[in-house]
C-alpha cells in the first residue's frame, strides 16, 4: 500500500535544493537570470564604489572646472579621460553614479528594513491577537495605504524639518529620509502579514502548540513567523524597488538627501537642467542606472512571487 514507510531516496541536500520548484522556475526564466545578474552587478558596484570608482567626485582637490561638460568617451580640456563624461563642475559622471547608487541603495534598503520590521511586527500582533488591536492597527494601515507613499514621506519629511534645528538638518537628512520612506511603506507588510497570520492561526499546528500551553510569543515567533516569510520576501523585494524609486523622487523634488551626498535622484535633478542645452549624458546615465536598478529588483520580486505561489502561474 501507499502508506508504508518508504525508504527515502538518498540524495544530498544540495541536490534536493537544485530540484526544488524555486530553482526550477529560476532556470526556466532567462529574464530572471539576467535581472539577478544586473542587480548583483549594480549592487556590487555601489557597495564597492570607493574602491572601484575611477575618481572621487566629492574631493574638491581633484575637481577641475576645466574638466566640465566633457562628453562621454572622450578626454577633457584638462587632459583626463572620462568614460561617461562629466557634469558642469567637472565631476566624473561614472563615479557620481557609483557613489549615487550607494546612497540610493543604502536609503532604500534601510527604509525597507525599517518598514519590514515595523510592518511584520504589527501584522503578526494584529493577525494573532485580533480584536481591538487588530481593528486599530488595520484601520490605520488602511487609511495610510490609501495615501500615496510619496505624500506620507513628504509630510513626515516636512514635519521633521520643522522639528529638527537647522544646524543638524544636514546630518540627519538621510535618517529622516529613511524613516519617512519606511513609515510610508510599513502598511503593505502589515496587511499581508496579518492576512497570512490569520490563516496560519486557524491551522491545527498552532492549536496543537496552544494545547501544550506554549507561550503565545513563542508560537508567533517559532510557528507563525516562519510560515509567513514567503509573502514577506516578495513584498520586501518589490518594496525595495519602490523605496529606491521613492527616494529618487523625493531627491528629485529637492527634499531628499543633502546636495553633498547626491543620490541617483539628485543626479537626475541636476542633469535635467542641462537637457535642453544638449548635455544629455549628465541626465541619461543616472536615469538608466536608476531604471535598471528598480527594474531588475522588480523582476526578481515578480519571479519570487510566481515561484512561491505556483498556482498563480
Amino acid at each position: 500500500m501507499t502508506d508504508l514507510p518508504q525508504s527515502p531516496p538518498k540524495t544530498s541536500r544540495w541536490k534536493t535544493f537544485l530540484r526544488s520548484d524555486i530553482v526550477w522556475s529560476y532556470r526556466r526564466s532567462p529574464v530572471t537570470v539576467v535581472a539577478s545578474i544586473v542587480a548583483f552587478l549594480l549592487i556590487f558596484m555601489a557597495v564597492f564604489a570607493p574602491l572601484l570608482a575611477p575618481y572621487n567626485p566629492f574631493n574638491p582637490a581633484t575637481l577641475n572646472l576645466m574638466d566640465g561638460f566633457t562628453p562621454p568617451n572622450s578626454s577633457s580640456m584638462g587632459g583626463r579621460y572620462f568614460t561617461l563624461g562629466t557634469d558642469s563642475q567637472g565631476r566624473d559622471v561614472l563615479s557620481t553614479i557609483m557613489y549615487g547608487s550607494r546612497v540610493s541603495l543604502f536609503v532604500g534598503a534601510m527604509a525597507t528594513l525599517f518598514a519590514m520590521v515595523m510592518g511584520v511586527g504589527l501584522g503578526l500582533v494584529a493577525g494573532y491577537v485580533g480584536g481591538l488591536w487588530d481593528a486599530v492597527i488595520m484601520r490605520v494601515a488602511d487609511v495610510q495605504l490609501s495615501f500615496p507613499a510619496i505624500l506620507i514621506a513628504l509630510l513626515i519629511f516636512g514635519v521633521a524639518r520643522g522639528i529638527i534645528p537647522p544646524n543638524q538638518q544636514e546630518g540627519a537628512a538621510i535618517w529622516v529620509l529613511i524613516i519617512a520612506i519606511g513609515l510610508a511603506n510599513w502598511a503593505q507588510f502589515a496587511r499581508t502579514v496579518r492576512g497570512a497570520t490569520m490563516v496560519e492561526r486557524q491551522k491545527d499546528y498552532v492549536a496543537a502548540a496552544r494545547i501544550l500551553g506554549v507561550n503565545p510569543f513563542i508560537i508567533l515567533l517559532r510557528h507563525v513567523l516562519p510560515n509567513v516569510v514567503g509573502p514577506v520576501l516578495v513584498i520586501g523585494t518589490i518594496g525595495l524597488a519602490l523605496a529606491i524609486i521613492e527616494e529618487a523622487t523625493l531627491s528629485y523634488l529637492g527634499v531628499g538627501v543633502p546636495p553633498t551626498q547626491p543620490s541617483l535622484g539628485t543626479l537626475i535633478r541636476i542633469g535635467q537642467q542641462f537637457l535642453f542645452s544638449g548635455e544629455w549624458w549628465i541626465l541619461l546615465f543616472p536615469a538608466i542606472t536608476l531604471v535598471l536598478l528598480a527594474l531588475s529588483v522588480n523582476l526578481l520580486g515578480d519571479w519570487l512571487r510566481d515561484a512561491l505561489n505556483p498556482k498563480l502561474r
Binding site: I245, A248, L275, L290, V291, A294, D302
Partner: peptide, 25 residues
C-alpha cells in the same frame, strides 16, 4: 506584462522628463 513591469519600475518624474524630451524638445 513586460512593459507593465517596466512601467512600475520607471519613476513618474523620469516618464515626465522622457515625454518632455521626445514630444516637446
Amino acid at each position: 506584462m513586460t512593459l507593465s513591469l517596466i512601467g512600475v519600475s520607471l519613476p513618474t518624474f523620469l516618464i515626465g522628463i522622457g515625454l518632455i524630451y521626445v514630444f516637446a524638445v
